[in-house]
Amino acid sequence: MTSATTAKPIDKLEAMFAANRAAGRKVLAPFVTAGDPDLDATVDVLTTIAEAGASLCELGVPYSDPIADGPVIQASYTRALDKGLTLEGVFSAAKQASDRTSMPILAMASYSLVFRRGIDRFVADAVAVGLAGFVVPDLPIEESDDLDAACRQAGLALVRLVTPTTPPDRAEAIAKKSTGFLYCVSVAGVTGARTQLPDGLVDRIRWLKTKTDVPILVGFGISSPDQVKAVCEVADGAIVGSALVRRVAEHAGQPREAMLTGVRRFVTDLAAACR
């Protein structure tokens, strides 16, 4: 926690966005489930995606009852937990990954886990292992004052989400509170690849841009380079979750290198769409 006074964890994230903006590039932000198939593999996946062009990663912290997640991410959480995954393990994998790569990593964690550990301890652990911040998908603004204060104090990003069902005045309030970036959920529904992006998404992103200065990343349902390209026409970047988790899972039982090659190829193609 001592370094928090000099350089804040969020600085890394903001510097990354600034560098991409200066280079005229958009940001690819893959989602990776911690502990699927195991924590060593997760560390390798994180370094591999960084090499392949990911600018930022959301590290999914498995939770037993993830109501915002579709079948692919749910199943990955179940696999990880069935093997005895603990928060201690997730934090240690995050530490190893952040020692090996400069790519900012955010923890995507249910508030159930944050609350149970205690906000202060969860935040201190995150800072200690080099995380840049959090996405807490089940914490609406009404309930977030305590975590918000702790994150500001520690210099961690607390990324908020707006969705298609969020009314405009509420979306504005959420955008104002979001630090690091704003997560624009493309569809009303759970996570999972979709073949088509919804109508009106581009207009929503354009409107959101007038309401906030933080970068806007779009996620849920994005699975192909074409979709990444489409989203990056207006947004600052794209988040790809289930499609990558599925690729990791497809290589279950195969040699580690085969899985990492598959991941590298997929992320390279997605990153190319951000140029």
């Binding site: 109501i67 915002a68 508030y111 159930s112 998908p137 089940d138 914490l139 609406p140 009404e142 309930e143 908020r160 989400l161 707006v162 969705t163 298609p164 069902t165 969020t166 009314p167 509420r170 959420i174 959920v185 009303a188 529904g189």
Partner: peptide, 20 residues
């Protein structure tokens, strides 16, 4: 008004459900 029974209760849900 926040759905609190003492410290219990509240509304910990994805933003998608807030409006409903």
């Amino acid at each position: 008004a926040y759905g609190r029974f003492g410290k219990f209760g509240g509304r910990y849900v994805p933003e998608t459900l807030s409006a409903a």
